[in-house]
Amino acid sequence: MLSTESLQKIDREIAKYPPGQRQSAVMAALAIAQEELGWLPSEAIEFVGNYLEMTPIAAYEVANFYNMYNLKPVGKHKLTVCTNLPCMLSGGVDAAEYLKSKLGIEFNETTPDGKFTLKEGECMGACGDAPVMLVDNHRMCCCMQPEQIDKLLSELE
């Protein structure tokens, strides 16, 4: 189900926890699986559960609880925009509207070419740098005024 490289990464995570606590690595393992597969089909969640010696349903509960896991396929790039109050005061909502009109999609939709999925995010802990966006869960983009958004979209292949 997962590549040797992904399994090695998961093993490194398991080693952080005391013996008998493999389950502690489930968040990291699901994230690693998602990075390889783009999203988490139920077979992947079941695989991770079995690998960590936990019931598949317990692994599914975790995948379902934390909102950065993709339980449905997403576009090549996932853009998450924070619209929470501090960001909203500094243009977070406007940035989201701008992205919606540029991409021609609403939140939780993917562009027809499969390139971008747009998500509404909650506080990312970077309110001083609003508007803030997260690209593919890993890259935080700060102070996203219209010109920076245009630049980001043209950069992302």
């Binding site: 493999r22 389950q23 502690s24 489930v26 699901l30 909650e122």
Partner: peptide, 20 residues
Amino acid sequence: YGAYICGEESALLNSIEGKK
């Protein structure tokens, strides 16, 4: 991996244990 409630200390401990 994205859950405000994990800032609550006992939720955070459950999260480290690999639970919701």
